[in-house]
Design a protein around this nucleic acid. Structure first.
Lengths: 193, 193
DNA sequence: CGTTTGCTTGAATTCTGTCAAAGCAGGTGG
DNA sequence: CCACCTGCTTTGACAGAATTCAAGCAAACG
């Protein structure tokens, strides 16, 4: 799909951009391709972009004091990803974002983001609804993390995001679910009986 | 503070509402008082309002299959709370929101919320930034839940929200942190040595 | 003043993590 | 084209952390 961004706007706020509107909007983004394992944003340095995935996939993770990586978010085609903390505050990032495959993205920097929000009520609306949806998902994830067993969380995850199960290595899914790869392996073994 | 809402707008988007703007805005809200343990929103029924706390405190929780309550969010003065999922989708709620003390709130229903967003770029901006801030906090909480021990999570929580420790019963804080009250009690004992 | 509610503590159990090793698959270079 | 390497998954034995069950206690409440 060439106009993945236009499609995303339509899906999100049920509004179809005219050709002029679409041209205007996409003028603020620029397209870029990354290899597998490329770093889009790095802990310790300011995250300067929000990324919209056109093709490929990536994930964000945090590193704790012991040096372990913990997956925070996955993003595939038509998903948005950034270090929200760093991007909005312009402070040092706390997450690293890395591609899982060769990946093509649209990038929007902070100035463009601000300008779009300021000059276009429609864009601000779009962003508000995107964030609304994120909050719903994040809060749901938190409540499930605290109230369900690892097995049930895995079942729910694989039900909600079957395409992720295909494309994302198991040790990252384990870390996303807050368990070790060995534990996930045992859960899967138990479920296969 | 009489104009807690005006103060919240100023703090959030660094903009001071004129008297007319403030009058116009607050005309969409209505004020209401609740007893302790009053239910503001209930699992299974559509959540019709977002609440802004003027005085008092409340919390949202989810109930799992085993019937255990799990605290999802706490809200005190100048905080916003709702069942985001239900409020925005207008479907049956998945969280219950209950007061912890006698509590005074401003309530905004879905129609007013929509109308405000549609007619006022400023309000939409305000909401967008509120949500942006929520996402930062929620994502941070998820990453810490998955990467830190219960002890470290408690230490961080009590450092970030010392006022919560004062006002919120320990068993709810335990549930917010994803552990049992007995475990939190043991953690606190260990920390006091 | 008795009842309820929340916090603490102990002992036994269950679940997840840790450590170590082996198996497996895909990719690379000889 | 095959052998090897590397990264990921699986498995087993054991250690450790959190839960469960149960009891006791103190403060708050009606």
């Amino acid at each position: 799909m060439a106009d993945l961004l236009r499609q995303n706007v339509r899906r999100t706020i049920d509004y179809t951009l005219s050709d002029e509107e679409y041209e205007l909007l996409s003028g603020f983004f620029f397209k870029k391709s990354f290899d597998k394992k490329a770093v889009l944003a790095e802990e310790g340095t300011t995250c300067r972009y929000v990324y919209f995935i056109l093709k490929g996939s990536c994930y964000s993770y945090i590193v704790n004091r012991q040096g372990d990586k913990h997956a925070v978010q996955f993003a595939i085609e038509e998903h948005w990803i950034t270090d929200h903390y760093s991007f909005f505050s312009q402070r040092k990032g706390i997450y690293t974002i890395e591609t899982l495959e060769p990946t093509e993205v649209l990038m929007l920097n902070r100035d463009s983001y601000n300008k779009l929000c300021k000059t276009s009520h429609l864009f601000e609306h779009f962003m508000r609804v995107l964030m609304q949806n994120s909050i719903v998902a994040l809060q749901y994830r938190i409540s499930k993390t605290n109230s369900e067993s690892a097995k049930d969380r895995y079942l729910e995850f694989s039900g909600l995001y079957p395409h992720f199960i295909q494309r994302i290595p198991q040790y990252l899914i384990a870390s996303y679910l807050g368990i070790k790869p060995q534990s996930l392996s045992r859960i899967r073994k138990e479920l296969s009986n």
